[in-house]
Computed example of a mutant assay.
Amino acid sequence: MGKKALLLAGLLISSFAFAETKYIDDTMYAPLRSGQGLEFRIVHKGIKSGTPVEHLQTNAESGYSLIRTPEGIEGWLPTRFLVNEPVARDKLNRMTQQYTALQQKFNDLQNEYNQVKGENSDLGGAREQLEKSNKELQLELSNIKRISENAIALDTRNRELRESNEKLKNEVELLSAENLRLKDSDERDKMLLGGGLVLLGVIIALIVPMFKREKKAGW
């Protein structure tokens, strides 16, 4: 008895170890029984079509397979209710979900593209504005440079004029001093001439009477 129990346990363990996933076929609900036949009690009223289950073992003679549901319930059902791949309806649902997800992703990418395109358009406008501002600044800098060059030239010319003015003032002062010197010299000459004439008059006044006396004495 103990050996049979160990053997049964080994078979169960080996069947669990090699369990594979199967799917309930297009049958709406497949009842799960405690044994391999309709006379055994139902342990699950019906497994929904497309439900993945663990396939534990198959009895080819009875046409039944032992499975375990996702809830952990074990039982037997006709092997014909099991398929290796999901049923077409589930495949369609999954494909529909995948399509919906891809469509959503496409819409997100389209929105992102439109947003980036709009940002690029805004950047293009900003770049044009910057280029315009840059040209205006360059023109203003050129004007400032030209004004600065004119200011430097005017300052240089102003210094030259000031220097010329100083030279002219010095020359005027020299001419004024020379004029004063000439005036003083002319006045001195006039004074000397006047003094000479006076002296000459005095001499003549002294000499003439002497000539008159000598003339009278000769007579």
Score class of each variant (00 low, 15 high):
Gln98Lys: 15
Val198Ala: 11
Pro86His: 12
His55Gly: 05
Phe16Ala: 00
Lys48Asn: 06
Phe16Pro: 00
Phe16Arg: 05
Glu166Thr: 10
Glu61Lys: 12
Pro52Cys: 01
Glu171His: 06
Glu173Pro: 05
Lys190Met: 00
Arg68Glu: 07
Trp219Pro: 14
Asp90Arg: 14
Gly75Leu: 10
Leu192Lys: 14
Val202Pro: 10
Ala205Arg: 14
Leu32Val: 11
Lys190Ser: 02
Leu193Ile: 00
Met28Gln: 14
Phe18Met: 15
Pro209Cys: 01
Lys212Ile: 15
Val83Glu: 07
Leu82Ile: 06
Leu11Glu: 09
Glu85Asn: 02
Gln138Leu: 15
Thr79Glu: 02
Gly10Tyr: 12
Ala151Glu: 05
Lys4Thr: 10
Phe81Tyr: 05
Ala151His: 01
Leu77Lys: 12
Asn150Asp: 08
Lys135Ala: 05
Leu154Phe: 11
Glu54Cys: 10
Asp155Arg: 04
Ser176Lys: 15
Val87His: 08
Leu12Ala: 06
Lys4Asn: 05
Leu206Arg: 09
Arg127Lys: 13
Ala17Phe: 04
Gln57Lys: 12
Gly2Leu: 15
Leu82Asn: 04
Lys216Trp: 11
Gly218Arg: 14
Val53Ala: 15
Ser14Asp: 10
Leu193His: 02
Ser62Ile: 04
Val43Leu: 07
Arg33Asp: 01
Asn114Gly: 01
Asn59Val: 03
Asp122Val: 04
Tyr64Gly: 00
Pro78Trp: 14
Leu12His: 11
Ile147Lys: 14
Gln57Gly: 04
Leu123Gln: 02
Glu140Asp: 05
Ser65Lys: 08
Ile24Asp: 03
Gly124Gln: 12
Glu149Trp: 11
Leu199Ile: 01
Phe81Asn: 02
Asp186Ala: 15
Leu8Thr: 07
Glu149Gly: 15
Lys132Asp: 00
Glu178Cys: 00
Arg68Pro: 09
